[in-house]
């Protein structure tokens, strides 16, 4: 049958997010690290110049990665390759789309380029993932065309506390909305500063329009399983793997713990002999909260 092919539709964009469920997406800065991630069972890699822990340490303006480096990582692995654009920097996003990356993360880890506007993601063929700290933020990003939402957590800290807060807030509010009556949904939309039709849809389906993943602070297999048990559908691990003593076995252990997230015996088994996790920092030691970037 001669029927035209449609690319870039919301269904096709959300479809890839669906395929990444139950998996681990790993931050990598070199083709070598990308290979280690793929060998360990990552479902995708996030190509970036510096992991968040280094961005935090070095300071300065953090931007989209060098296209050459993204090409190198694309050539090194067969799994999807994601890359980060600055919040509101739609030209960085255009460049990443032209490079053929599979997903763009409009990320608070990079220095924001626009103080009022996120990227109009509906204009793109490539799908976007965006961070959120609460349900209102998640729904605003979905209305702009995000095909996937992740908790922001606090990147580069190796501390799961912020991601837990964000997941609990998002999922807790979803739960409450499913209990609300139709009149209360107007108030919810106002309170969340989110489009009413999206709030009504959540009341009906009981879940977000797109998958919800966890990011920001995962350092151990138990952290990944915690995020999954709280209701995240996959995990992003940034600094937690390549800032640890022995990245390869830790990466594989986090993959196994994400799959078997309800089985404490398996999590116990894979958590042995991994060497030291990244040291991490507590929230009162940091001076810049990336989660506050974006609105």
């Amino acid at each position: 049958m001669a029927s035209p092919n449609t690319t870039g539709s919301m269904r096709v964009q959300r479809g890839l997010a669906e395929m990444l469920k139950g998996g681990v997406i790993m931050d990598v800065v070199t083709p070598g690290q990308a290979k280690i991630a793929e060998d360990a069972g990552a479902v995708a890699v996030m190509a970036l110049e510096r992991v968040p822990a280094d961005i935090r340490r070095d300071g300065g303006v953090a931007r989209m990665s060098d296209p050459e480096m993204i090409e190198g990582i694309k050539a090194a692995v067969s799994i999807p390759v994601m890359a980060k654009a600055r919040i509101g920097h739609f030209v960085e996003a255009q460049v990443l789309e032209a490079l053929g990356v599979d997903f763009i993360d409009e990320s608070e880890v990079l220095t924001p380029a626009d103080e009022a506007h996120h990227i109009d993601k509906l204009k793109f063929t490539v799908p976007f993932v965006c961070g959120a700290t609460n349900l209102g933020e998640a729904l605003r990003r979905i209305s702009e065309g995000a095909a996937l939402i992740r908790s922001k957590g606090e990147a580069g800290t190796g501390n799961i506390v912020e991601a837990v807060r964000h997941l609990r807030s998002i999922i807790g509010d979803i739960r409450k909305i499913t209990q609300a009556d139709s009149a209360e949904l107007f108030d919810w939309a106002k309170k969340l500063n989110a489009p009413l039709p999206l709030v009504q849809e959540i009341a009906e389906t009981g879940w977000l329009q797109v998958p919800l993943f966890c990011a920001g602070g995962i350092a151990t297999p138990a952290d990944a399983a915690l995020a999954m048990q709280l209701g995240a559908e996959s995990v992003f691990v940034g600094s937690g793997i390549f800032k640890s003593d022995d990245p390869a076995p830790r990466a594989k252990a986090i993959v196994e713990a994400t799959t078997h997230f309800r089985d404490a015996h398996i999590i116990a088994k894979v958590s042995r002999k991994l060497g030291a996790p990244m040291t991490g920092i507590s929230m009162d030691e940091i001076n810049q909260r990336y989660a506050e970037r974006g609105w």
Binding site: T7, R11, L16
Partner: peptide, 26 residues
């Protein structure tokens, strides 16, 4: 192809009249 080439289209399935809407992802 990669994700930017992922697509949806209509197929005809043997033994079935109505077209089937199919989503191809990578």
């Amino acid at each position: 192809g990669r994700q930017v080439d992922s697509f949806e289209t209509e197929l005809s399935i043997r033994g079935s009249d109505a077209p089937f809407h199919a989503v191809f992802i990578r």
